[in-house]
Design a protein around this nucleic acid. Structure first.
Lengths: 190, 190
DNA sequence: GACTTCTACCTAATACTATTAGGTAACTTC
DNA sequence: GAAGTTACCTAATAGTATTAGGTAGAAGTC
């Protein structure tokens, strides 16, 4: 019997593609085994269990997106950088909905700390250098931007914005305009 | 053998409580059957299948939250209303994480249209009356507010804001301040 | 109160997924 | 080519979802 040549990496990659096709929670060891024409038990030589596979997909997605984001903001500042970062998030969610969902798979503390997740907040903080914010306000702004990017991407994927006019692309553009204006005139605490 | 007195409503309610305790995707017919000390097959007299149960929990959550929101914004306007609505969302997510997750369970078109989901966007639009926005800008603002509320609640639940200082309550307050300022000075398209 | 009807809950069977234990044949290494 | 490693296998157990068909407890009728 010829060997399939499985590795944890190939399984992770295939799992990510499957996630984008059928949804992250439909990614099962059984489905992957079928894909590679292999018995399910055989996968346990490469990943420790289903949870491990999902963790690997999450880490892959976090890294892919962090790489794209780093690429996008390099050499940009101010609104330019803000728009670039926002678009990277939204585009990734639309191109890779399964991986995007995977990114929000609950990781245990150590894994999360060692993940590319930390680079995400660092990059968001970096684009705020183009705006005039005090230290604690930077943190608030990082959280606000993260909320908007994630919230918008999620609701758009869910179809929460319907097919109604104006189309969501326009709302997205105006949202980025609004965030830029907000960061330039960040209000003091009341 | 005495009867358990099951109904679709009791199962839905119990499912919602279970979701808050162990997570929405851990809500299974098996777990519910154990809870009521009944065989799994017996549940099929009351719900058509697992998907139906989850749909019912989602609808319950949508309605509960819409009711709370309506209550909160009644008699309020402007920033007052904005803060009240935002707090209702965030508090509900923290008190009922399982139900909050259930709300984002994918509903089919008809079910979604008949759900309390539509009241949510109506209420968000209502609080914008206190601000001076043109018609299409209102839609953009509704989407932005929805994104922020949902994104913040989700990231906070996930622990995405860490335990780091400043604490997330402060970021939340400042986020609401920022949104109010933004809506009062909504930028024109560029 | 006996008789019928209804239905809430049951048993039994099938199917899919996850996981572990232990075996065999295909590669690797020397 | 022999020895050792391991990729993949079979077999077994367990949890969950679903359907088909049976039984006993409740409700309604006379």
């Amino acid at each position: 019997m010829a060997r399939a040549g499985l590795t944890a990496e190939r399984l992770t990659q295939a799992g990510a593609e499957l996630a984008d096709k059928v949804g992250f929670d439909q990614v099962t060891l059984s489905a992957l085994a079928r894909l590679f024409d292999v018995k399910v038990a055989s996968l346990y030589s490469h990943v420790t269990n289903s949870h491990d596979l999902k963790t690997r997909i999450a880490l892959l997605a976090l890294q892919e997106l962090a790489d794209r984001a780093a690429d996008a903001v390099a050499g940009r500042a101010g609104k330019d950088a803000l728009v670039a970062l926002g678009n990277v998030y939204r585009d990734y969610a639309r191109e890779h909905p399964g991986r995007y969902a995977a990114m929000h798979f609950r990781l245990d503390r150590e894994t999360a700390i060692a993940s590319a997740g930390v680079r995400h907040s660092q990059m968001t903080r970096a684009i705020l250098r183009g705006y005039d914010l005090t230290e604690p306000d930077q943190t608030h702004a990082v959280r606000l931007l993260g909320s908007v990017f994630h919230g918008f991407a999620t609701l758009e994927l869910e179809g929460g914005f319907g097919n109604s006019s104006p189309d969501s692309q326009e709302s997205w553009t105006r949202t980025l305009d609004a965030l830029d204006a907000l960061l330039r005139a960040w209000p003091a605490p009341e």
